[in-house]
Each structure stands twice: as C-alpha cells, then as structure tokens.
Amino acid sequence: MSQIFHHSSNALARVTIFGGVFILGFIGWAGYQLDASHYATRQEVPRDQPVPFSHAHHVGGEGFDCRYCHTTVEDSSFANIPPVKTCMNCHSQIWKDSPTLEPVRTAFRNNGTIAWVRVHDLPDFVYFNHSIHVAKGVGCETCHGRIDQMPLTRQFATLRMEWCLDCHKNPAPNLRPHEFITKMGYTPAGDQEEIGRRLMAENQIQDARHLTSCSTCHR
C-alpha cells in the first residue's frame, strides 16, 4: 500500500499549525485595531454642522463657562444642547447681520431648532448619566478633552467600553475638586494620587466591584 500523504505533508502540517495560530492571531489583532481605529470610533473626526459653532472661540477665546449653555449638565443625565434662545442672548446684538448665523436667527424667529449633528453617540443600550459624573468630580475636560481648542467639535475619547471601564476600575486619577469641574487645562494643585483618594472618600465613590457591575451602565 502506498503512502496516502506525500512526504511534504509534514512541512505543510507544521506550517498549518503555526500559521493557524499566527493567522488567527493576526485576524484577531487586525479586527481589534479596526474596531478601535478612529474610522470606527469616529474619534477626533470633526463633524460638519449647520452652523460652524466654535468652542475654541466661545470657551477658549471669550471664557464662557460650559454651564452657561449646557445648563442641565449638573442635574440631568443629559447635557443639553442649548436652544437658539441662548445663542440670541448675545447674538441679538453681536454679529447680528452675519450670514453664518442666519440659521440661528431663522430658527429663533420661527420657534424652531437647529439640527445639530450629534458628535458623541453612545449605543442606545448604554445609560450614561452626566450629572453623577459631574457631582463625583469628573471634569468636562476628562472625557471631552480641550474643547476650548476645538474650532469644530470632535470626539476626544474613544467611547469604547474599555475606556469607560478603565476609569470605573480606578476613578481616582480622573477626579478633581468641584470648583475646577469645567476648567480647561486643569493641573492638580498637589499630588493627584492624594487628591484622588480624598475625593473618592468625600464624594462617596463606590468600589470597583459596584462601578464595573453590568447594570451600572446597562439595563
């Protein structure tokens, strides 16, 4: 009886075994990289808006506090996008003839809205709550980055679950005292480890087991 397998099959078998590990590994790695890429997360991708609103100008240049417009951020799960009325508080007199602001004036006259393009779009099965994060000492900058340097708003964080969990496992490095909550370019006055530990206790932040429980964010 002749051999079923040719002698070269030995080599093929070895290549298949090692190759299988590496090829599968590579596919897994490539898939992860693709999923975490800016293309998939839309991180750092500025969105075109109906009005090219510049946080760099309003926050960085004029020094507006985040809460002047996003008034609900301390009390509500959702940080509101301001109604056009808020724009008109100043733009009734400033740049009142600017063609760029015509959509704002039109919406204001007609009791309408501007269809802003959503920049941070979490999956609908995530129940993120702004107010609890602000109350516990997570600054705007921590998740939104240097918004005061963004001419067009873009997403600073990946918004991937591992990013959420990184902080939920160990919040202390990302906590700041309440008076600096909206400050951009914040640097801790002292040892962040110590400040973080103190704020964990003061704000009664729960341990990692509670913070990483599924139903903390999903329900």
Binding site: S77, N80, D124
Partner: peptide
C-alpha cells in the same frame, strides 16, 4: 439594531411630530 433602537433619547429627532422634536 441594538445600538440604534427605535426609541427616543434626548434630542433625537422625531418624524411623527410636525416640528421634528
């Protein structure tokens, strides 16, 4: 489907109401 469920979250537009809110 699970990411974009047919439900209203804050500021999601509506095709049901005339003003789109």
């Amino acid at each position: 489907d699970m990411h974009d469920q047919p439900k209203y979250i804050p500021l999601r537009p509506s095709s049901f109401f005339d003003d789109g809110r």
